[in-house]
Write a protein that binds this DNA or RNA. Sequence first.
DNA 1: ATCCAGGCTCCTG
DNA 2: CAGGAGCATGGA
Length: 333
Amino acid sequence: MESVLWQDQEKEILLQTPAEFCFEECLAFLARSANECTHEVRDGAVYKALKVDGEVVALKVDFVQGNAVGDAFSEPDFTPEPGTLRITFLTPPPKQSIRAATARYVRDWFDLDTDLRPFYEMAHKDSLLRPLVEAHFGLRLLGYPDLFEAVTWAFIGQQVNLAFAYTLKRRLVETFGEQVQHEGHAYWLFPTPEALASASVEQLTTLKLIRQRAEYVIGFAKLMVEGHVSKANLSSSDLATMRKALLSIRGVGPWTAEYVLMKCLNQRAAFPVQDAALQNALKQGLGLDEKPSQATIRERATGWTGWEAYATFYLWRSLLKIELSYEKISKIV
DNA sequence: ATCCAGGCTCCTG
DNA sequence: CAGGAGCATGGA
């Protein structure tokens, strides 16, 4: 039986969420940096501007308890605890194709299409992951559906602390991005490849990107503008193929490739074992004196097969000092 | 002040 | 092919 998974009402789009979904957990992750400039968490919602198929839209995304999708007079035909993610257009409602693309973006952003039950079953038997999935049940792998943003953000984050990376991103966005105004709030769009393809290395080093990484950003922007690289032609059924294609891009090494695979290309088996934060989370979680080697990490992760990206994401979450202000319902399959 | 941060390329031996 | 220098800034 086909259930109604989304509903388009011009100004609003309603997306059915799976049972393994907690909007507050997702919001807490999205609110992890006060210096974030490409979305804003406020009053129990997240606000964001984005460009889909060349059209700029500004959105509010919040959560509605219960099943708001489908015919109000019929019984909900799916999960025991249905919920609905509500997209509200702040800008004038765009045409249907843009609305559909927006819905697609939000589904990817919140990773609504992954069934987390196998992950939770696995994690529940793992001494390291169990407390994390219990504490953050319903947290989804928040991604960057836009390839240019995902790759550029990874470049910016290479070998600098996250706080500084956010500062660099803000400078880049405020220099090369577009801004949308709505009711006294300003929403920034991440720069397009076109905007950065024509930038100079000097413009970016002025923002304190080091020369080498400025070249990576501009080079990748040009690859996209010239049509040599796109999310579509990078996507393939084979993880190894995608990995190889990413690694052929200048500036993309093992860490960046895995990062983009997990945050943009929906690869649940991507595993950035080179990642300093993952290593620190494991050091802390396992009570080690030193950061574990990559070999040690892979050994510890043998049970995570197919879910390495989610395990990594929950381990990253364990490092964030974010408290949720509500009573959490922790329920594991 | 010192260490290190959600690394990568390029050059040695 | 493994190992290491260089990049270069800022948070803690």
